[in-house]
Amino acid sequence: MTTNADADAVADEPQPRPRRRAPAGAAVLREDVTEAIRAAVFEELAAVGYARMSIEGIARRAGVGKTAVYRRWRSKLHLVLDIVSALAVQGLPAPETGSLEGDLRLLYEVTSRALRHPVASQIIPDLQAEAARNPEIAEALQKTVREGQDGVASKILAAAVERGELRGGVDVELALDLISGPLYWRSVVVRGGKLPKGYLGALARATAAGLRAL
């Protein structure tokens, strides 16, 4: 019987045929094996936390060899940051509701759901604790989360300027902090837990008003 580890080992080897599908020497990585590894990361983080998590443990949970993990990620830090990127709405299309307040409200709804994810509630505080001790983790975590949020927020700002809801030349850095900061602070850093009814709508209105005042 062929295991995921055996199958991935074979699939990851250079494929002689068909030639047009991959350059000579390229590794062909099976998507089902990649997803099995990602699922194993969630389980391992929930079970032992970031500090005690190991590539060996992840590979064991996924039913693959360690080489299958290392073909995809250089380290457990890069692997976890890949997960954090997804939770931080990396690559999320910018909302297009037709108004600044509507776009902010939709962004906050999506972000709030991501932050309430059971794994996110464990991963993010755990990584924050590690970041306090490890500058490499701190820099990578900040870059990953910030890029995910700022990419969407920048598109919201650009659309609002184009519609005439915001003036041109707005302080982008300050605007991005104003958009992304309050919800993250409220949900992760200070209080956590369930948000009060109507909170996201009120936050969207207050943020829109603040952006107009910049």
Results as ranks from 00 to 15, higher is better:
residue 49 G to P: 07
residue 50 Y to A: 12
residue 50 Y to E: 08
residue 52 R to Y: 06
residue 52 R to D: 15
residue 53 M to F: 09
residue 53 M to P: 04
residue 54 S to F: 10
residue 54 S to H: 12
residue 55 I to Q: 03
residue 56 E to H: 11
residue 56 E to K: 12
residue 59 A to S: 13
residue 60 R to K: 14
residue 61 R to E: 01
residue 63 G to H: 11
residue 63 G to S: 12
residue 63 G to P: 09
residue 65 G to S: 14
residue 66 K to N: 12
residue 67 T to K: 13
residue 68 A to D: 09
residue 68 A to P: 06
residue 68 A to N: 13
residue 69 V to H: 08
residue 69 V to G: 00
residue 70 Y to I: 05
residue 71 R to W: 07
residue 71 R to S: 04
residue 72 R to Q: 13
residue 72 R to S: 01
residue 73 W to S: 05
residue 73 W to D: 04
residue 73 W to M: 04
residue 74 R to M: 02
residue 75 S to N: 14
residue 75 S to A: 10
residue 75 S to M: 12
residue 77 L to W: 06
residue 78 H to R: 07
residue 78 H to I: 00
residue 79 L to V: 03
residue 79 L to Y: 02
residue 80 V to S: 11
residue 80 V to T: 15
residue 84 V to H: 05
residue 85 S to F: 00
residue 85 S to G: 15
residue 86 A to R: 12
residue 86 A to E: 11
residue 87 L to F: 12
residue 88 A to N: 13
residue 88 A to E: 09
residue 89 V to M: 11
residue 89 V to P: 05
residue 89 V to I: 14
residue 90 Q to K: 09
residue 91 G to L: 03
residue 93 P to M: 04
residue 94 A to F: 08
residue 94 A to H: 07
residue 94 A to R: 13
residue 96 E to Q: 15
residue 97 T to S: 15
residue 97 T to Y: 08
residue 98 G to Q: 13
residue 98 G to H: 13
residue 99 S to T: 15
residue 100 L to W: 05
residue 100 L to M: 02
residue 101 E to L: 00
residue 101 E to F: 05
residue 102 G to K: 06
residue 102 G to E: 05
residue 102 G to W: 09
residue 103 D to Y: 01
residue 104 L to M: 07
residue 104 L to Y: 10
residue 105 R to E: 08
residue 106 L to S: 07
residue 107 L to F: 15
residue 109 E to A: 04
residue 109 E to R: 10
residue 110 V to F: 04
residue 110 V to T: 15
residue 110 V to C: 01
residue 112 S to Q: 07
residue 112 S to E: 09
residue 112 S to K: 01
residue 113 R to V: 13
residue 115 L to W: 13
residue 115 L to D: 02
residue 116 R to C: 00
residue 117 H to S: 10
residue 117 H to F: 03
residue 118 P to M: 06
residue 119 V to F: 03
residue 120 A to S: 15
residue 120 A to K: 02
residue 122 Q to N: 00
residue 122 Q to K: 14
residue 122 Q to I: 14
residue 123 I to D: 02
residue 124 I to P: 05
residue 125 P to G: 02
residue 125 P to D: 02
residue 126 D to H: 07
residue 126 D to W: 09
residue 126 D to S: 11
residue 127 L to K: 08
residue 129 A to V: 12
residue 129 A to D: 08
residue 130 E to Y: 02
residue 131 A to S: 14
residue 131 A to V: 09
residue 131 A to F: 09
residue 131 A to N: 10
residue 132 A to Q: 14
residue 132 A to V: 13
residue 133 R to H: 14
residue 133 R to V: 10
residue 133 R to C: 11
residue 134 N to W: 13
residue 134 N to D: 15
residue 135 P to W: 04
residue 135 P to A: 04
residue 137 I to C: 14
residue 137 I to N: 10
